[in-house]
Design a protein around this nucleic acid. Structure first.
Length: 331
DNA sequence: TCTATTTGACCTGT
DNA sequence: ACAGGTCAAATAGA
């Protein structure tokens, strides 16, 4: 290891350069009619990621390699297209939100159909950070249930978007603490955020994420992005699809792991991830090179950095080689 | 008073 | 029948 300060400065510069490069590319894409909205979103996410990382380095004064927290994602895609769960009122919970006592027995408490797209993200929180809980993913969630799961040591928490009733956002997530590794949490997201919060990159406050009874906090005291930023860093993320109709690469929004305040991007990926190599090694070599190219460029710096798993979690992000970014279902 | 969490009951899918 | 997912009344905190 070299002088950490020096290394940090290099990393910082690299990060800023990367951000600049991404911004430049975004500019190009903004002028290109053929560029998809999704592509731009990804670019924005990446830019924000870079900036966040740079900022956190400046603020913390610690290297990004600290890796207090690590996230690994798994995409469990349904066969639904995003349209179906953002636009169609069928199923989901909307049909059970009206509670008519008279119809109570006939009213469905329909469980989310198994076809609802879902994706899982594993988040590891290293102890000793004094912050084992709140893993802000950029959305505000409200807990609506908890259940002991057969074979699992820890109960599973059920959360829905806080704006469900206001904006009809049907996104939900489940948080399950890992048996073997209590510092690991498996978060399964379902449905896409249709609330304004979800359509912007603004990291809103709060995140109940881990409010397991055994935890400290009681409420998800609206955490400020800044706090979060200093609180943890993501180390890597992996996305896998499960249950996915591979022809329909239709995914809901997806969080780009972020070093700090979890800037999420509606990535709509369908990267599958066997989990071996890293992003920089361009596992995405689909025919659609537009995004792959962009990402590759951006990832290069990350991959090149001595500490690959540094904040910008592309280090472990993988794409399905067969994934096509401009899948008609999505873009 | 309002909003979020807790938790037992209820409902659905397998 | 069972396990998992959701509801909603009760409760707690701001």
């Amino acid at each position: 290891m070299e002088n950490s300060g020096e290394w940090e400065q290099k990393t910082l510069i690299r990060e800023l350069k990367q951000g600049r490069e991404l911004a430049r590319q975004l500019q190009v894409h903004l002028n290109s009619p053929s560029s998809s909205h999704e592509t731009r979103q990804v670019l924005v996410s990446m830019i924000l990621n870079s900036l966040d990382k740079a900022l956190s380095m400046l603020k913390c004064g610690t290297g990004v390699g600290g890796g207090e927290q690590q996230t690994i994602g798994t995409l469990i895609g349904g066969s639904d297209s995003p349209r179906s769960f953002s636009g169609s009122p069928r199923s989901e919970d909307s049909d059970r939100d009206f509670k008519d006592p008279e119809h109570k027995d006939s009213v469905s408490r329909k469980r989310k159909s198994s076809s609802t797209p879902r994706w899982t993200q594993q988040v590891q929180v290293c102890p000793g950070t004094g912050l084992e809980g709140p893993l802000d993913d950029g959305y505000s969630w409200r807990k609506y249930g908890q259940k002991d799961i057969l074979g699992a040591k820890f109960p599973r928490g059920y959360y829905r978007c806080t704006h469900r009733h206001v904006q009809g956002c049907l996104a939900t997530k489940q948080v399950q603490r890992s048996d073997e590794d209590p510092t690991m949490f498996e978060i399964t997201y379902r449905g896409r955020h249709t609330c304004s919060q979800g359509s912007h990159l603004t990291p809103p406050p709060s995140s109940p994420e881990i409010q397991e009874p055994f935890h400290t906090g009681k409420h998800d005291h609206q955490q400020q992005p800044g706090e979060i930023l200093l609180s943890f860093q993501t180390g890597g993320l992996r996305v896998t699809t499960e249950d996915l109709d591979s022809r329909e690469n239709t995914f809901p929004s997806f969080y780009f792991p972020s070093t700090s305040n979890n800037v999420e991007g509606n990535f709509s990926p369908s990267f599958v991830s066997p989990a071996t190599s890293n992003w920089g090694n361009q596992n995405f070599q689909g025919p659609e090179s537009e995004l792959a190219e962009i990402i590759s460029a951006a990832a290069t710096s990350a991959a090149n950095s001595p500490n690959v798993s540094s904040g910008f979690s592309f280090g472990q992000l993988e794409f399905d080689p067969n994934f096509t970014f401009d899948n008609p279902g999505f873009f």
